[in-house]
Design a protein around this nucleic acid. Structure first.
Length: 495
RNA sequence: GGGCCGUUAGCUCAGCUAGGUAGAGCAGCGGACUUUUAAUCCGUUGGUCGUGAGUUCAAUUCUCGCACGGCCCA
């Protein structure tokens, strides 16, 4: 019988112990356990009581958890067990439990799950401890956990075997708990404001809503090519046409592009749409959102990120793209006004361009290099060129730019928002311009979407919409340098 | 795609510069120990040194390719 694909002497020992336990009639994997109290509850309830008070409180509780440490003394032993709320010490004495239980306990290892029933007391050194009256095996672990002192530090193992990372590195678990709480706070903010949470297709016949290369797949029964979505935008706006005036979606987008400390092929995006609002309204809403979340999580408007202090107190600076390029990036006016000058300057900065890049795309590359890393405090950049904003409404004063902003925090792009283009004739022209770019070799250019145009032709109310990169928000709020540290299972090459 | 760095016991790491087939700590195993907490004390097991070639009498060590990972650049 094959027990495991690969063993080692340490694993052989555990298999032998498992056999001994089986021979004793002990189940290695019993079903369920009645837990009476969690570690954090025990600490909250008894943590402040002195020894005498604890002795008078002779009540018996059941706890369950994974054995994380073990110190044996012949006829007694201290162990630490860990549940999802924390760690607590247990004291196992031969004279307090049955002989069979003590024999079972001797065959238990670090990593095993145990159920303990007993009463709390305080040790000589003052640690709150449960004295076992009963102990039972709840699940046998066949593999040794990483070392107790250094934990698991190998980055590759931490990502590939995130469960081990979570078991032994408490800060990692805390980070992902915080991630969940931040997303809850965001969701709560929108629900409070009467937004409706919806789910739109992740498999789309035409990938739209963002300038990005999609993943392609195939539906066998339909005999149909499909794309994983690069954004939910065009579907959410169909819902706006349908009369859902305030909608939001928090879910995964997929972009078939490079991987970096800021990019994972699948990432979590929040998008929301608000009828009768403009991009300016969304700036205020965004300030309110971040203040709600940061205050809720940190109890303060100020956080630390990679050694920088970031203050979320509104109002945040609002700078036009051109002003930012000139004043922060040190870009000259002729670069701003002329594609050839811009291309020449980009070459000087050793930024690689493609021949198909339009002036706006070159300016964005300059911006990414010269300005973005400097935008530490939350900053709205406005006035993006129309030619790189195919879904945004033109500005009334200057049709060459759009009613759009991007939000930067901690030197990273965090959000993108605009007053939606709801003129179907203009939208058709923009799609055609994008198609031309695609034909010219720009694989990121957007696809013509007739079905979306049809929806818009029925009439889309004035609307503003925004997308926020949730993983990057989590990076900021957990002081993480890499997006892989805030995604439970980041993409990895298979081995 | 390019540059640099890494891959040695279950985990954390030495060893490689100046080639002679491996060490430590923790974990494990055996023994002592009924208030320890990185428990302590005595003894001890465990490795195709990521992978494939090359150079050499001899390669974990030098050279090259490949795989996986990290950082930076594109």
């Amino acid at each position: 019988m094959i027990i495991m694909a690969k063993t080692s002497p340490v694993i052989e020992d555990r298999i032998n112990k498992s056999q001994k336990l089986k021979n004793m009639g002990i189940s290695l994997y019993p079903a369920g356990f009645q837990t009476g109290i969690m570690v954090s509850d025990a600490v909250a309830r008894f943590g402040q009581m002195d020894s005498e008070a604890l002795e008078n409180e002779s009540k018996v509780f059941s706890m369950a958890g994974r054995i994380m440490a073990r110190r044996d003394f012949g006829k007694a032993s201290f162990i630490h067990i860990k549940d999802t709320t924390g760690r607590i010490q247990a004291y196992i004495r031969k004279d307090k439990i049955s002989d069979e239980e003590f024999e079972t306990f001797k065959l238990m290892d670090i990593g095993d799950f145990v159920g303990i029933t007993g009463s709390f007391f305080r040790t000589r050194t003052g640690e709150l401890t449960i004295l076992a009256k009963d102990i039972s095996l709840l699940s046998k672990s066949l593999r040794p956990l990483p070392e107790k002192w250094h934990g698991l530090t190998d980055v590759e193992s931490r990502y590939r075997q995130r469960y081990l990372d979570l078991i032994v590195n408490d800060s990692v678990k805390e980070l992902f708990v915080m991630r969940s709480r931040i997303i809850q706070a965001i969701r709560h903010f929108f629900i409070k404001k009467d937004f409706l949470e919806v789910e739109t297709p992740m498999m789309q016949p035409i990938p739209g809503g963002a300038t990005a290369r999609p993943f392609k797949t195939f539906h066998n029964a339909l005999g149909m090519e499909l794309y994983l979505r690069v954004a939910p935008e065009l579907y959410l706006k169909r819902l706006v046409v349908g009369g859902l005036e305030k909608v939001f979606e928090i879910n995964r987008n997929f972009r078939n592009e490079g991987i970096s400390v800021k990019h994972n092929p699948e990432f979590t995006m929040l998008e929301f749409y608000m009828t009768y609002a403009t991009y300016k309204d969304l700036m205020g809403l965004t300030e309110a959102l971040f203040n709600h979340v940061v205050t809720k999580i940190f109890g303060s408007n100020v956080i630390k990120y990679q050694g920088e202090t970031i203050d979320f107190t509104p109002p945040w600076p609002r700078i036009s793209l051109f002003d930012a390029l000139r004043d922060i990036g040190g870009v000259k006016d002729d670069v701003l006004n002329n594609r050839e000058y811009a291309a020449g300057f980009a070459n000087e900065c050793q930024i690689s361009l493609s021949d198909a890049d339009v002036h706006g795309q070159i300016l964005m590359k300059l911006f990414d290099h010269l300005v973005e890393p400097k935008l530490i405090r939350p900053t709205f950049i406005t006035g993006y060129p129309t030619e790189i904003s195919p879904l945004s409404r033109r500005n009334d004063e200057n049709p060459e730019i759009t009613d759009r902003f991007e939000l930067f925090i901690g030197g990273k792009e965090i959000a993108n928002a605009f007053t939606e283009l709801n003129d179907p004739v203009d939208q058709r022209q923009r799609f055609e311009d994008q198609s031309a770019l695609r034909k010219a070799g720009d694989e990121e250019a957007q696809f013509m979407d007739e079905d979306y145009l049809t929806a818009m032709e029925y009439g889309m109310p004035p609307t503003a919409g925004e997308g926020i990169g949730i993983d990057r928000v989590i990076m900021l709020m957990t002081d993480s340098a890499s997006i892989r540290d805030v995604i439970l299972f980041p993409i990895m090459r298979s081995r």
